[in-house]
Structures are given as C-alpha cells and as structure tokens.
Amino acid sequence: MPSNAHVIAKSEKSEKTWAELTDNQHKVLAPLASEWDTLRPWQREKMLDIAHDYPKMDSKKQELVQRRLNRWSRMTPYERENARKNYQKFQSMPQAKKDELRKKWKEYKQLPQNQRDTLMREHPEIYKDQELEN
C-alpha cells in the first residue's frame, strides 16, 4: 500500500504543466510539447517515467524513443498494456528469433494496405471506442 507522501508526490508529478517541466524533460518530451497540457494525469506520469529512463539509453535508442513517442501517446491503455506484455515476451526470445521477427515485420509492412486491413478486420476487438475514451 503506497504511503500518503508517495501518493502526493505522484499526484504533483502528474499535474505538472509543460512550463513546469525541467529542461531535460522538455528535451525528451519535445514531440509532445503541443499536446502536453491536454494529456491526462496518468498519461503525463507515464511520459515522465520515460523521460526518467531516457538518459540510461544509448543515442540510437534515444532517437527511436523520440520518433515513437507521439504514436505511443496516442495508443489506448489496452494497446499499451498489450504492447508491454508482448515486449516482455520478445525480450525473453533468443537473438536469432528476434532478428527473424524484425525481418518479418519489415516484410509485413511491405504488404499492400488493403491486405493488411483485411488481416486487421479479422481482429476488430483491439480498437474499441470505449477504450479510446480512457
């Protein structure tokens, strides 16, 4: 059970406006600058966690984070949770399997859009309006 101090600290952290963020946080979260103040507290908190871990990564990964941040902020909580679970599975795979999946993803992205749409329609459950509201 979290302490009151911890809850208050988390609350203060997630209520920070763009102007209240530090220079380093501005630098990492720059792709979200225009929409930061419209993000919900829990979204801001998650993004601040990303900014916290950012300096631990090498420059190549940092670049990927910046490039993917916008798309990530637009994903639903359901999608993000699924992504976290599948990322953990991916992390536990041997490198050869990871390389194979990376290659397959590139091939999949080369498929015509209508073919990918058809495949997606067979799994309509992932984009529910109710989840987009969260």
Partner: peptide, 23 residues
C-alpha cells in the same frame, strides 16, 4: 520501462498489430 519498449528493435505498434500476428 516504457522507454525501453519505445527504444526496442520493434516499434510499439508491432507488439499490438493483430494483423501482423495473423500474418
């Protein structure tokens, strides 16, 4: 952390793209 997910070898959408799973 989410930061490492974003910096991983696959983009985040690859982890949730059911079309990719089906394919």
């Amino acid at each position: 952390g989410d930061a490492f997910l974003l910096g991983s070898e696959l983009p985040p959408e690859a982890y949730v793209d059911e079309g990719f799973n089906k394919w």
